[in-house]
């Protein structure tokens, strides 16, 4: 028995489980950033003076790098477009595939069927749309990494000039907000990277080497060291027992089978599209937060 509505939408709510889940998660994220924004408002209204982001430190401002942040804004917007394109390429491919399958089921015109299947067979469409998807998703990840590099440069510049969160409340809220946003970007990169590649195959291929070659060699070396250093045989045996235990319990198999990555496109294409849509929703939200952070931290005048 399967859990219902993981793929198709429930008629009375009009959404599938994942979409409702991700929107609920985003609702809680709104409240998380809401708490921080209200902290900003409070600190700012309560402060006797407040720094202006774009003014250099020597002139009494916060000395934030506005051109770099503008660049980052463009990058995040662009990554939003690419991730939505990644989703769209899957959705379009899937719809075409279905249309063709639908055509095939109607044995009306033999000639037409032959033309259609010659031009585009479903397998080919599927593979092509996956390639497109990987292109756009790769671009998204590239953009997010660029964003992080720019951010790291900004942080490093601040630290090397003796500016830390404790220097002024402006920096306190600046580092907290951008830091938390940066963590969200990193989370997004992990999720998107998970969807980018066929992890199950990759891991099964390499995991075998790690599991049957590298780990045993390391363990044997460890045992040899333990015996050599006179820690006793009991201690030396324990890692081997642990390894056998792991082997028997088949944790690895479970682990590998549980993370298909983009291989889900082959097994459950509709569900995979849903997942990409959810990942996209999260990513757009991260973009949206930045759209508000940018003017609030970098552009607003001081007082």
């Amino acid at each position: 028995m399967q859990i219902p509505y993981t793929v198709e939408s429930r008629p009375d709510t009009g959404v599938y489980n994942g979409k409702m889940g991700i929107w609920l998660f985003l609702a809680s994220e709104v409240m998380l950033f809401g708490g921080l924004f209200s902290t900003y408002i409070l600190l700012r209204t309560g402060a006797v003076s407040w720094l202006e982001g774009s003014v250099p430190v020597e002139q009494g401002g916060a000395g934030l790098n506005v051109p770099l942040a503008t660049f980052n804004t463009f990058i995040l917007i662009a990554s939003s477009v690419t991730i939505v394109m990644a989703w769209a390429s899957l959705a379009i491919g899937r719809a075409r595939e279905k249309e063709i399958a639908h055509l095939e089921l109607e044995p009306k015109d033999i000639q037409e069927r032959i033309t259609v299947s010659a031009l585009s067979n479903p397998q080919k469409i599927r593979a092509e749309s996956l390639k497109k998807f990987q292109f756009y998703m790769g671009l998204t990840i590239l953009f997010s990494l660029l964003f992080l590099v720019a951010k790291a440069y900004e942080y490093n510049y601040k630290f090397s000039h003796g500016i830390y969160p404790k220097t002024h409340n402006f920096y306190a809220i600046y580092f907290t907000l951008t830091g938390l946003h940066g963590l969200h970007i990193i989370g997004g990169v992990l999720v998107n990277g998970y969807f980018l590649l066929p992890w199950k195959t990759l891991l099964t291929r390499f995991w075998v080497i790690i599991y049957y070659l590298i780990i045993p060699v390391v363990l044997i070396a460890l045992c040899a060291f333990l015996i050599y250093s006179g820690s006793g045989v009991i201690f030396a045996i324990s890692p081997i027992i642990l390894y056998i235990f792991l082997l028997v319990s088949g944790l690895v198999k479970t682990f590998v089978s549980a993370i298909p990555g983009c291989q889900m496109w082959e097994t459950e294409p509709d569900r995979f599209i849903n997942r990409i849509e959810c990942a996209g929703l999260y990513w757009h939200f991260v973009d949206l937060v930045w759209i508000f952070l940018f003017p609030v931290l970098y552009l607003l005048p001081g007082s």
């Binding site: 609702a27 809680s28 994220e29 409240m31 998380l32 950033f33 809401g34 708490g35 921080l36 902290t39 600190l43 830390y164 969160p165 404790k166 409340n169 306190a172 809220i173 580092f175 907290t176 938390l180």
Partner: peptide, 23 residues
């Protein structure tokens, strides 16, 4: 909807304690 603000507050207090900020 009510827990995230405390998470925010927890992060702020951690900043206060570990990074020396004054939230």
């Amino acid at each position: 909807l009510a827990f995230p603000p405390l998470e925010a507050a927890g992060i702020l207090q951690l900043m206060d304690r570990l990074a020396g900020t004054s939230f």
